[in-house]
């Protein structure tokens, strides 16, 4: 093996990584955020209407801001809605961009939480048969500690980020209401098919809602920061077709949210088991984006209208 050759390959990889991480953060400075809600600070501050931000992971992606904003305009409600969903978002990840969120001065923040956000690796040793049958998972677990920090730095979709930056440089800042650069219509998958094909694998993850959980700490920080800045927070549990957790965990999750709701005086809504019988699903975790799935958006609208009063 020739080492100059390998060295140049590694040099290229290193250079690409540097440019990559730099440009991914250029995106952040351009758009002032760590999310997919694409607007620049000076533009949003020029908007005269009050702003509503929707936060959450891909499970809130399909809330259609166009419909919501259309409703606000036709009913002369002086609010504008922005869906800031980010792929595989969690309180811990969201905390990084919290100051940006606050500096954009929203009036209401509505936050969709997902039980998956609070699940962590189970530290128990993996049984031998599991290693034999799924060697892939075994290796993933072995290197997880090493990979996690790297994974956290790579955005859910670098493509969207590059394109957004590119668009910004080419066309300047644009108010943009959708979470990802494309808001495609997606197909509804028959519910029976989804239920059959979804394996619930909760053996290597456990729910951690304790006070020491990093996600819980982050969530509390988010709540406190928003309170400090007089931003109204609404929390809801994001809808899922299959909650990959057992019933006790789900109950615990509900109870914890209720406790926070009382403690911090935050309105809370439960949607996680709301649509389990409806034919509106793209997959077991995500509502499809489609004319026939508007119930999700409409429920969010209802929550907002109720809380605005």
């Amino acid at each position: 093996m020739n080492f100059t050759l390998l060295f140049s390959v590694f040099a290229v990889i290193a250079l690409v990584s540097i440019i990559f991480s730099f440009s991914m953060s250029v995106y952040i400075s351009v758009y002032d955020s760590d999310w997919y809600g694409l607007f620049s600070k000076n533009v949003t501050n020029q908007l005269e209407k009050e702003k509503i931000f929707l936060l959450g992971s891909s499970t809130v992606y399909s809330v259609n801001s166009t419909i919501l904003n259309h409703h606000f305009i036709t009913n002369e409600i002086e609010y504008e809605f922005f869906n800031l969903a980010d792929m595989s978002d969690s309180p811990k990840k969201r905390l990084h961009s919290l100051s940006n969120i606050i500096s954009n001065d929203p009036n209401i923040v509505i936050y969709g939480l997902d039980i998956g956000n609070f699940r962590i690796e189970n530290q128990v040793p993996i049984p031998t048969e599991e290693i034999i049958l799924h060697p892939q998972n075994f290796f993933l677990y072995q290197f997880d500690d090493f990979m996690e920090p790297i994974r956290e730095k790579i955005p859910g979709s670098p493509k969207d980020r590059s394109l957004s930056t590119l668009k910004y440089f080419l066309f300047g800042p644009q108010p943009h209401h959708h979470p990802f650069i494309n808001f495609y219509e997606t197909q509804i998958t028959p519910i029976n098919e989804l239920k059959e094909n979804t394996l619930i694998n909760d053996s290597y993850q456990v729910l951690d809602l304790s006070e020491n959980s990093e996600e819980i700490i982050s969530l509390k920080k988010i709540i406190n920061e928003l309170k400090k800045n007089n931003i109204k927070l609404i929390i809801f549990s994001a809808p899922k077709l299959v909650n990959d957790a057992n019933e006790n965990d789900i109950k615990l999750f509900e109870q914890t949210l209720k406790n926070y709701s009382e403690k911090y005086d935050i309105p809370i809504y439960f949607l996680h088991d709301e649509y389990m019988d409806l034919e509106i699903w793209r997959d077991s975790q995500h509502v499809a984006i489609n004319n026939n799935t508007q119930i999700y958006t409409k429920d969010i609208l209802e929550i907002l209208l109720k809380e605005m009063k």
């Binding site: 050759l5 140049s8 390959v9 290229v12 250079l15 990559f20 670098p158 493509k159 590059s162």
Partner: peptide, 22 residues
Amino acid sequence: KIHYWAGILFVFFISIAMFYVG
């Protein structure tokens, strides 16, 4: 030559990284 070659690899890798879909 090795530096041109590395340049071409760079173009491939950077396009892959920047347009990676997830």
